[in-house]
Simulated scan of single mutants.
Amino acid sequence: MSGCHGPKMKMDPSLHQEKKPSWIKVRLPNDPVFWSTKSLITDLKLVTVCEEAQCPNRWECWGQGTATFMIAGEKCTRACGFCAVKTAKPDALEDDEPYRVAEATRRMKLKHVVITAVARDDLRDGGAEHFQKTIEAVRAMNPGIVIEVLVPDFNDRDWALEMVMAARPHIFNHNLETVERLTPLVRSRAKYDRSLIVLKKAKAMVQGKVATKSGVMLGLGEKHDEILKAMDDLLEHDVTVLTMGQYLRPTPRHLPVVDYLHPDQFAELKQIALDKGFRHVASGPLVRSSYHAADFRPELDILDDIEKATPVAGMDLQPEDLPIPAATKDIVRASVS
């Protein structure tokens, strides 16, 4: 597998629409909060999907003091045709990473955090236990925070998925990414039906007490009726939150952009999805899985059930006991005071 250059394209590269339309605009950072967020992430030696996946909204989100933390390293074992994350042999998991993520949520005073990861097919559990530990560490250090996870499919291993759900995230997100016909071209090793089954199983494992979420990229050559079918399939598998955004090619070695959808088309699809029964829909050219994630709040019964199931009595550790590298006692104590 190749490194940071991306996978070999499996679609005709002549399909690519090189010229971006006027509505594809990225705002550059002009807020001091952006730089303080960047500094914090560097200080705690964390990885964000914002940077690794070249998210077009990272300037905006970091300027608001929010970020999506990518655990389990920055090297993925899959080579999906759309993704900018490096494909390479992953490094060993870092035992203290869950605490560093938790520390970041406290320093940033987050009310909502998104935790994602690369696919770790090299690990027997696909990184599920690492997700579990990170969720638990975040909840212990930042009680009351809404925890959203964006997970790989764990190769549909029920026992691995159960590890994640045992930690009781409030929102379980697994992206369908594209329509059924294009899945073999777009998603390395992933399967359309398997992703749907993982979403349904996750909800069933906690008796429905989790909000389930998924997202699709548009502009890869999908047809309108295929998008509608993907919506119906997600609803049939108990998904209530949907994101839809424009696919943007990270490098010339990635899949071509076949179409740029107009913002009016995204608005139309949003209304269709809401009419079909989705509880919350984010749809627009620059929408990504974590874009304005805190705009959606799970149902009160979900929040209440998780609070009862995961009581937090308070931290027994002192701040200086947390295994955060390159942070002195004074720095850590000040950050959690």
Rank of each mutant, 00 (worst) to 15 (best):
R106S: 09
R124N: 10
Y99E: 11
E222S: 06
R297M: 12
E129W: 09
K270V: 06
G63W: 01
A92D: 14
L123I: 03
L255N: 04
M165Y: 01
W62Q: 02
V336L: 14
S214R: 08
R249T: 08
D153F: 03
M217R: 08
A326H: 14
G127M: 06
L176N: 07
S290Y: 04
D233T: 10
A166W: 03
T48C: 07
C55K: 08
K201Y: 01
A211G: 10
P56I: 05
G284P: 09
F131P: 02
K329P: 13
L161F: 03
H5F: 14
A273T: 11
D122A: 02
R107I: 03
H254W: 08
T310C: 14
K191Y: 05
A294F: 10
D264M: 15
K229H: 15
V149Q: 01
R249I: 05
G245N: 08
I306S: 03
L15T: 06
E180R: 14
M1W: 15
R124Y: 10
T240V: 13
M163C: 04
K20N: 02
D259E: 14
A273V: 11
G6T: 09
A327C: 14
Q54M: 15
R333M: 12
A137H: 07
R288L: 02
C50N: 06
F172Y: 13
S337F: 13
D305A: 14
A230D: 09
F278P: 03
E94D: 14
L248I: 11
E299H: 14
E51T: 13
A79S: 13
P298C: 03
A160I: 06
M231Q: 12
G277S: 12
